[in-house]
């Protein structure tokens, strides 16, 4: 492998890693607070991408307006999913909530297929955001820089919110102990809704950037990125925001490098993340940054 191709792979892996990191944060926040794999999170990517797509193509809105609309609507959708499908089951067995989450995810996917058809569509790249950059022999898209920068800005914002604001403190309290924090006059429902809002907004940004980087949208586009981002969150230590970030980058870099160094294994690319997941769960179930929790009677 020549140096050029290696650098190209490095650039690709950082882009993919930042996307994973961004989406993984949504998973980790929701899991941290209600201990639920929000299967629908993956489909929020798809919803955001489609709203942006239709905003630009059908309603011919400028890209920034359709992106903003996409983020707002996806956030609302995320919050309403929690309200309708998860909140009524809060005292139910965990399996029921998980089934409900899978149900929501399938509903969104199939609604997507019904409403817009199963055929993939090309996502328009706004010229202001996407151009070619040539340095020596390496050419890459501006997105290669833009995506990590946006990701890092959002990560800093989310970290600040969780560490410093009142809502953030409430979130951490609820994730530590649900009942005690509600005794301390924390409005648990509001905090959970806020968590879903933040997570969904990040998913929306992730979805839009995903469809600019790999310019194609289809109703099942969220499925694999979603699963992989959950894996990234588990890798980093679920419930931990810096963990999700690290997990996302590690997974993205490993995945691109695996295909880069061993092209004959490229068919197994999607299996790789799952193998990593299983190894992590077996040998370090708490993840890279997480702590192992022993269940008490």
């Amino acid at each position: 492998m020549s140096l050029d191709i290696f650098l190209q792979n490095v650039a690709n892996s950082i882009t993919l890693g930042s996307l994973y990191a961004l989406i993984a944060i949504g998973y980790t926040m929701v899991y941290g607070i209600i201990r639920l794999i929000n299967f629908a999170h993956a489909d929020l990517l798809m919803v955001a991408a489609y709203i942006a797509f239709y905003g630009m193509l059908i309603f011919t809105l400028p890209w920034y307006i359709s992106f903003a609309i996409a983020i707002v609507l996806t956030t609302l959708l995320g919050v309403s999913i929690e309200r309708v499908a998860y909140r009524p089951l809060r005292s139910a067995p965990r399996i029921s909530v998980l089934i409900s989450a899978i149900g929501v995810s399938f509903l969104l996917q199939n609604l997507g297929i019904v409403a817009i058809g199963a055929r993939p569509k090309a996502f328009p790249r706004p010229e202001e955001l996407v151009w070619n950059i040539q340095i020596g022999n390496i050419s890459f898209l501006s997105l290669t820089i833009l995506i990590p920068v946006v990701t890092i800005i959002l990560l800093v914002l989310v970290t600040f919110m969780v560490k410093k604001t009142k809502m953030g403190i409430a979130m951490r309290a609820v994730s530590r102990d649900f009942e005690t924090s509600s005794l301390m006059a924390v409005n648990v429902n509001k905090v959970i809704a806020a968590t879903f809002a933040v997570g969904s907004a990040l998913a929306a940004v992730g979805g839009i950037m995903w469809s600019m980087q790999y310019p194609q949208v289809d109703p099942l586009m969220g499925l694999f990125p979603g699963l992989k981002c959950f894996i990234a969150a588990v890798m980093g230590g679920i419930g931990s925001i810096p963990g999700a970030m690290i997990g996302g980058f590690v997974l993205g870099i490993c995945e691109v490098m695996l295909v880069g160094f061993m092209p004959e294994l490229s068919g197994y690319r999607d299996a790789f993340a799952f193998i990593v997941l299983i190894l992590i769960l077996l040998f370090r179930p708490g993840g890279i940054l997480g702590e192992n929790v022993v269940e008490k009677v």
Binding site: L98, I231, F274, L277, L281
Partner: peptide
């Protein structure tokens, strides 16, 4: 099967996908 609940769900889903990919 050392895992529980949602971890088990994701791990078994992962194994099923690995089988399909293989």
């Amino acid at each position: 099967l050392r895992l529980r609940d949602d971890y088990l769900a994701i791990a078994t889903l992962g194994f099923a996908e690995i089988i399909r990919i293989v």
